[in-house]
Each structure stands twice: as C-alpha cells, then as structure tokens.
Design a protein around this nucleic acid. Structure first.
Length: 469
RNA sequence: GGCGGGGUAGCCAAGUGGUAAGGUCGCGGUCUGCAAAACCGCUAUUCGCGGGUUCGAUUCCCGCCCCCGCCUCCA
C-alpha cells in the first residue's frame, strides 16, 4: 500500500508522490517567539515529527524547514513593554523553544529561518516587488502594501471560503480603511511610532513585513518554488496558508504546495487551548507535575492528528502506564538475548505498524499492532518459549518502530548509596525468609520512590515514574 | 449564516457492507511467602437520534440533535 495523506486542498486522502523522490521537502509553520510555546503548539510539532520520521522510515530523504516568527505585533509590543530590543526580547523564547523540542524528542528541522534575518527580509521585499509589478499588490494611502485578493481567483480555495459571504467576526481591524477590499492582507506594514526601533527600509518606505509573506519567502528561498508538504494547525488554514498560496503562486506561477496537512487542536475542557483564552499549559507546567517529556510526547502522539485531542491528567497517567508496559517488555527481551534459550514459538511479524502509518498516519492502529506484539511476545516469554534469536529479532523490530515513535527510555539510573544499602538489607532479609523485614524495607524503598519487584533472578529496583531525583 | 472536524465501553481510541483492534481503569484467576510485573478471563447484543437502501448498516443514503474549530492575531 502506498503512503497516503489527507490533503486539505482537495479534501481527500491522496497517494503521496513527491516531486523529486526520494527527496521530500516539508515546510512547517513554527512558533511566534513572543512567549513560551504551549503544549497545544507542540501537538502540531509532534505530528510533524511523526510525519517526518515515518517518511524517513519509508526511505524518503526529508528536508524540513521550520520558521521562527520573531517580528510581529506581539513581539514588538512585548519588547516595548519590557523596554528591551526586539532581539533581546525574543532570544529567551527562542532558547526555550529549542529546549522544549529536545525534551519532547522532536527532530530538529534542517533549517530554522527567522523572519528578521536580512536575507529573508530581502527576499520578502523582492517578492512584494514582483507582486506589485503584476498588479497583485498595491500601496495604500497609509503607505502599507496590501495583496489584492480580487486579482487572485484561487484565493479562498484552500479554506473553501466564499469571500463574498464572509461574516465580520469582530476581529477585522476597522482602522484599515485604506484597503480596497476588506480581505486584502498586508504584505508590508508601514512604520508606526509603536514600532520604535523595529523596521527596515524598502521601496515603499520604512516598515516591516506582514506575517504571511515571511513564510512564502522562507519556504521558496530554502525549498524552491514547489514544496511537497506544508503543515500547520487547522487555524492556519485561513487566512495564513491561503495568503501563502496567493503570494507564492502570485510570484512563481507554479503550484506552491503539493500536499497540505493540518493538525486538529489540542483542547482543554473540550475547548481549544490558546494563549488568548488563558487555558494553556507549557511544557514546564507538565514536567513540573512530574511527567517526563516522553510521557507528554506519547500522550500527544497517540491520537490521530486530524482528531481534536482533549488534554487531561488522566490521559497523562494512561500514557505513563502504556510506556511502562513498553519499557518492561523491552527489558525482558533484552535479558533473553543473553540467554541460551531456544525459540519454539515463532511469532510471525507483520508490517502492520508501518502500513497503518502509511494510511494518513493512523497512529492508533499502529500502536494497536505494537501492543499486540507485546502481548504475544510476553506470553511466549512467560512460557519460556521465546529464545535469544527471537528476542533479538523483536528488539530490532522495536528499534525500527522506536525510530518513528521516539519514546524509548534510554537512561538507566544508578542506585543511590542509601537505596542500594536498603536493597542489600532486603536481599539478606529475604535469604533469611524474614518476610516482615523484607516487606518493611520494600515499603521504605517505595516511600522513597523506588519500586521493588521480586523475580526468579532476585529483586529488581526501578525508580517510579514521576518521581524527581 | 458559510466552511471544516468530531459524537464507538468508566476514560482514551481504531475500524469494516457480514456482525466491534488496542491502550487505560476496575473485577476474578495463574504466578508469588505477600506483593509487583506478565499472562488468562470478565467488562459495548452495540457504535449520538430517527428514517431509508440491503439477506445483512456502526459502516452507504436522507433528515435531525449535540460538542469543537475557522470565517483576516492563532499550531
């Protein structure tokens, strides 16, 4: 079965055929660095990470770009209020963003272009000039330059909006009287005293780029006129991605994006998680409650990207338990690889994991197969029917699966001195069949955050998830 | 109002025109000195509601209800 994705533009699941296989270009809208990204933002990035990893597992060579929006109304306002330069203001948020990426095990994009980099400002100016030359843009009385949507017949096609029927939502800025059409969007915003030091010279005067043009400029500059996949949250469909199409195709005359993939929102109490509603959590909010990055990663990863996902602490707990199950299974397999045990119960592997992901990233079905494998192999392990060769096979299989999921627990923590002491005491108590002392020591270890399990090979001690060292 | 997404067990969630994957929780069992982990069994006669098509519908068609999002800041 070929890889297939749901394309927002055509509203159908389509076979994925990149322009230049095996190369795949992906452009993903990144964060606006005016505050710390919330976990709803990261749901989108985790989805994009899964997309990239799956494509790579299928042999594609992915070139991915994620932009950083470091100049817009909010960053300018933030800098002004903090009384620092724009650059100083956005720097810590950029840093935090990269830290969060690492915590969530997100593969870094190949490039993270920032809107304020001079080469991209130059590219934006170049594109706006082209659009003006083609009459697709005009400078209004307020000196700002706007895109003339009436001249671009496909405008509205991605969102399936009939522009004549747009209902004013109250968010339309009523002070933009100068525009020819209410739907025309800014390509270049004329300098305003609120902008302070922020601004660049352009053929239309001092000012700054509009939000949409930066993505068109960076995408085409780094990936060419045609991009295989463009991703983002559903809230970016309109107007942002619609505008990107208009700008890019207005300049190049070529189909800008072959596949549009959009991620549904992360909800809190069944409402969209957003900064403006104030109902959001950042990654530190989650890790502060004792959850690890991989637990959050799993919690956000396990639901199909086009389905709204309600974030709950119960969900985090479910993720933790599921991961513990995987960890335990992996550990058991690893132990058997060193044994002389023979296999007499061959479990036939199937390609169901990757095939599920081929089907528009059907992660639930993929995980369903993973847990089926876990149950079957555990059963064989219980029956002493799974040998070293088979264990190695399934560990290899898991490695491939984990290259896509990236949820493996890698660190094994050394026992602290006092824990080791208690553990040794317990071993002795058990040899003496002093169950009372043994149980007391187990309780003691548990109270300190260490779980004890007795096995044929002796007691095993692991740090309980969620306990900070 | 327009355009989308969703409604499947306590919770999360796949899925197919042929009789409901998986995770989590709970209960019972095997194992264990007791636990834990693992495994086994149980937990949706039923897939928002009402019609229709069909031998058969959760799946297709029609109508309706509810939730969420977008409609020019937004992942």
């Amino acid at each position: 079965m070929p890889t297939r994705f749901f394309d927002t533009y055509t509203r159908e699941v389509r076979e994925f055929v990149p322009l230049n296989p095996p190369n795949v270009s992906i452009y993903t809208c990144g964060p606006t660095v005016y505050s710390r990204a919330h976990i709803g933002n990261f749901r989108a990035y985790i989805f994009e990470d899964l997309l990239q990893r799956h494509l790579e597992s299928r042999g594609y060579r992915v070139h991915r770009v994620m932009n950083l929006t470091d100049v817009d109304d909010k960053t300018i306002r933030g800098a002004r209020e903090a009384n620092v330069s724009l650059e100083e203001y956005t720097k810590p948020f950029k840093k935090a963003f990269f830290e969060d990426l690492e915590t969530l095990r997100l593969k870094r994009a190949d490039e993270f272009p920032a809107a304020t980099e001079s080469r991209y400002i130059a590219r934006m100016i170049e594109m706006i000039s082209q659009l003006r030359a083609r009459d697709l843009a005009y400078q209004a009385e307020d000196k700002s330059v706007y895109f003339r949507i009436k001249k671009f017949p496909n405008y509205g096609k991605l969102a399936h909006l009939n522009l004549d029927e747009l209902r004013p939502s109250g968010r339309v800025r009523t002070d933009e009287y100068e525009k020819e059409n209410i739907g025309d969007f800014a390509l270049w915003k004329a300098w305003d005293k609120e902008d302070g030091e922020v601004g660049w010279d352009s053929p239309w005067g001092h000012g700054r780029p509009g939000w949409h043009i930066e993505c068109s400029a960076m995408a085409t500059a780094l990936l060419g006129d045609e991009v295989d996949i463009h991703c983002g949250g559903v809230d970016n469909i309109f107007p942002h991605h619609e505008a990107e199409i208009a700008q890019s195709e207005g300049c190049t005359g070529k189909k800008f994006v072959r596949y549009w993939l959009h991620c549904a929102h992360l909800l809190v109490d069944n409402q969209k998680m957003s900064k403006s509603l104030g109902n959001f959590y950042t990654l530190p909010d989650v890790t502060g409650k004792g959850y690890s990055g991989r637990e959050l990663r799993y919690a956000l990863l396990r639901v199909h990207y086009r389905v709204p996902l309600n974030f709950t602490w119960t969900g985090m707990e479910e993720a933790r338990q599921a991961l513990a199950r995987i960890d335990e299974w992996r550990q058991r397999l690893a132990e058997v690889t060193g044994s002389q045990r023979q296999s007499n119960n061959i479990i036939q592997p199937r390609d169901d994991f990757s095939r599920a992901l081929d089907d528009d990233l059907n992660i639930s079905a993929a995980l369903g197969y993973l847990f089926e494998v876990i149950r079957q192999t555990n059963r064989a392990l219980d029956a002493d029917e799974l040998g070293a060769d088979s264990a190695r096979f399934w560990l290899d299989w898991w490695e491939k699966v984990n290259r896509v999921l990236a949820v493996d627990e890698v660190t094994s923590v050394a026992l602290p001195k006092e824990i080791e002491l208690l553990a040794n005491q317990r071993t002795e108590a058990r040899l003496a069949k002093n169950w009372r002392a043994s149980d007391q020591l187990r309780d003691e270890l548990s109270a300190r955050g260490w779980d004890v399990r007795d096995t044929k090979e002796g007691q095993k001690i692991t740090r309980r998830a969620g306990i900070q060292p």
